[in-house]
Design a protein around this nucleic acid. Structure first.
Lengths: 263, 263
DNA sequence: TTGACGACATACGCGGCAGTATGTAGTGTC
DNA sequence: GACACTACATACTGCCGCGTATGTCGTCAA
């Protein structure tokens, strides 16, 4: 039920330039990757380290930046048309390349999907876990987690959208044995992220900072609220960090108010 | 453009009285459909009627319960595998039938998708609008809207999931002119629903019942929270209304706490 | 300079699926 | 009992898109 931001202009035309998009998208994802690794280090050095989760998994047989570009292109294409409706040619077109390049790095469309989704889940979990590990009472920790999660959503929309659309769908479609194993892996990653929120929320309830509630259901209500922008946010021309920060503020206020105890 | 959506392109010319419809004693969708019509009547009789939106649009060239069953089967199949990954044979298989039956009522897969999505949006909007029209201060009205929305989400998951997955994706893929028109129609329906929440929220802020906030962003944070169960709720064996009511309570408490002013 | 290898582009093969064409059983209708 | 018509099932076609096989261009090592 999330809506498009601008009904008028989007309805009339909606034509996007074919060229010039790939460079920006790639740089964005690469920078995000670097930040994520930095966050992982910060988490390891923090006093209250969260349960050891591996840092972002290097791509299978990592072949560097060229492979990262393919991955970012796939995320972009999947975001725009959805996984099933996206052809490998679509992915290649984002890079102004052909199928050969994609299949040079990935053996199948599913493998591509798995890596995009894994990247999404690891990026956001590592960053949020670091925010939690920075310490403080449950209220402060939760607020940092919420801000961090929402910020990641707004920053790396392509990866997160792919992950949100496809995880459990893919679980049901997955046919072969190793396919199911790979998806189960992704699911456990997602569950770890959810459990982190559940744990902090439960701490806060026990400490009378948060409203008594069914913590599992509440977290599953909270997280979609944070994920919302994946579906409705469209960056405007000349968009700044401040624009996104304002949205994160609104989301955080709503979410934290929803959790806190009224006195 | 216009807030009131047109009826289908070649919808049977004259407006037929809605009460003249056959009581499609169809299990899932039929019952929901009947409830929706009842809600529409309630809305019409209520003192504060919401802006006139037509009741649930009859299916194009309505051919009764058999067509409803095809529609429900499509919603089920789309929910399970996603729209793009679902074949018409999959839809038929849900009914223990073959492709012939589906194409007897629908000329294309997109037409099927459009009707499922329209049904989803109209069902939930009509019901929520009736809840709002029941009156009271903004706080009470909003709480009824939230409860009603969340309840509909839990009840008619198949239809809503299809709608949530596909609207804006489809908007971008839609090629022909009338396809774009049909999708624009769906978008305006969704926007009307969103505007209803925005309006009541703004009223509540003006009346010092709700926290001052960016009402548009906040509604777009609130609604995904209500829609959450579409993605994670799985009915257990021997599931009761009470199970769902407990979830609705949790969601409502979170959402309303997120909106209300702290004193 | 050659030959091995990485990094792609090009050119198929082949299956699955949307849509169509045709068959067929039932049900009124005159 | 012939006709029409609905409500499907079955059989078929064409295309799109996944994956693969093969070609080409550079680069580096010996």
């Amino acid at each position: 039920m999330s809506a498009t931001p601008h009904t008028g202009p989007e309805n009339s035309g909606g034509n996007e330039p074919e060229d010039g998009r790939s460079d920006g998208a790639l740089e964005g994802a690469g920078a995000a990757f670097a930040r994520t690794l930095a966050a992982a280090d910060a988490a390891d050095e923090a006093p209250l380290s969260s349960p050891a989760l591996p840092p972002v998994t290097p791509l299978p047989g990592d072949r560097g930046a060229a492979q990262e570009e393919v991955l970012a292109a796939a995320a972009q294409a999947f975001m725009e048309k959805g996984f099933a409706a996206t052809s490998i040619d679509d992915v290649a077109r984002v890079m102004n390349a052909t199928k050969g390049r994609v299949y040079h790095y990935y053996r199948s469309k599913l493998e591509l999907f798995n890596d995009v989704t894994r990247r999404s889940l690891e990026m956001i979990h590592v960053e949020v876990a670091a925010a939690e590990a920075a310490g403080g009472d449950p209220d402060r920790r939760m607020e940092r987690m919420v801000r961090t999660h929402a910020g990641s959503i707004l920053r790396d929309r392509a990866f997160h959208r792919t992950a949100l659309q496809g995880v459990e769908l893919h679980l049901r479609i997955a046919a072969s044995q190793d396919q199911r194993a790979a998806v189960a892996d992704l699911v456990s990653l997602r569950d770890a992220h959810e459990r982190l929120f559940v744990r902090v929320l439960a701490e806060g309830v026990a400490a009378d900072r948060f409203r008594p509630c069914d913590v599992k259901v509440t977290v599953r209500t909270l997280l979609p609220a944070l994920n919302g922008p994946v579906f409705w946010y469209r960056p405007r021309e000349g968009e700044t960090d401040a624009d996104r920060a304002a949205i994160v503020d609104q989301i955080t206020e709503f979410a934290m108010s929803g959790l806190r105890l009224r006195r």
